[in-house]
Amino acid sequence: MARRALFLDRDGTVIVDTGYPRDPRSVQLLDGAIAAMKEARDLGYALIVVSNQSGVARGIITPEQLASVHSRMVDLLAAEGVVLDGAYYCTHGPDDGCICRKPRPGLIVDAAREHQFDLAASLLVGDKASDVAAGEAAGCASFQLGTWVEALAWVRARSRGIGGRNG
């Protein structure tokens, strides 16, 4: 069986989007994310976060603050029994022309290369159209998050080979 991943945006998908989070104490997991991530893991998906964090390039947050927020998210996930297989962040701004900034697929392609994932067997869930576009550009079936209940139903269907390519 091909090695497959569930790629997840961070803000608005795994954690509550507070707009350029700087304070790790403000990090809260999004309702439904834990259950969905656990079930995805049970279905054989590795869990990879892929996230634009242009606040660094814009000078809104520091790399250290980004790292602190990431660590807090990892700790909250671990406390619920969820361990990520990786996390990839693009800290460039929208006008930097970088290939890793979504909607470009660089973060996803890098993760797939490093972990030897089959992108055609992998999925992406994110809360923005740019997330979906990045997943599609990388060759993943992609779903724009409304609720985790909807997204999890889509993940289940995709894991059984049912349903359209994108949500």
Rank of each mutant, 00 (worst) to 15 (best):
L145V: 02
V49P: 00
A112E: 01
A157V: 13
L152S: 13
E136N: 14
L84D: 03
R25W: 00
P24H: 04
D11H: 06
L124N: 03
R156F: 07
A157S: 13
G106A: 10
D127G: 10
V56I: 12
G59N: 09
V14D: 11
R101N: 06
F117W: 15
E150A: 15
L8Q: 03
A35W: 00
G55I: 10
G97I: 04
L145E: 01
V125Y: 14
S142Q: 08
L47T: 05
W154N: 07
R113C: 05
A35M: 00
G135R: 02
G139N: 04
A33R: 04
V149S: 13
G55Y: 12
L145M: 02
L123Y: 09
A87T: 08
A133N: 09
C100A: 09
L119H: 05
T147G: 06
D96I: 01
G163A: 03
I60E: 10
L107D: 13
Y20K: 03
T13G: 08
K128V: 02
S122F: 12
L8M: 11
I99S: 14
K128A: 15
Q144D: 09
S54G: 15
R41I: 11
D118R: 01
W148S: 09
R72W: 06
A46F: 04
T147P: 09
T62I: 08
V16S: 08
R156P: 06
I61K: 02
L6G: 12
R58W: 12
A121W: 09
A141P: 01
R104I: 08
H70Q: 15
V74I: 01
R3C: 11
N166C: 11
L84Y: 00
R104C: 05
G139E: 00
C98S: 07
L107G: 12
S26E: 14
D75V: 02
S122Q: 12
E114P: 05
R160N: 12
K128W: 01
A87V: 07
Q116Y: 08
L145H: 06
Y89A: 02
D23F: 06
T91P: 14
Y89T: 05
M1Q: 03
L124R: 05
L43W: 01
S130H: 04
F7T: 07
A111T: 13
L43K: 01
H115S: 03
L152T: 00
H70D: 15
Q65K: 04
H92S: 04
C90N: 07
S159H: 13
R25M: 03
R104Y: 11
V14Q: 08
A137Q: 11
M73C: 11
A137F: 00
V49H: 06
V50C: 10
Y89F: 15
G146F: 04
C140V: 02
L43M: 06
R158N: 08
K128D: 09
N52K: 09
L145S: 03
G106E: 12
G44I: 01
L6C: 10
R72I: 01
S159E: 07
A138H: 07
C90G: 10
R101W: 10
I108Y: 11
D118V: 02
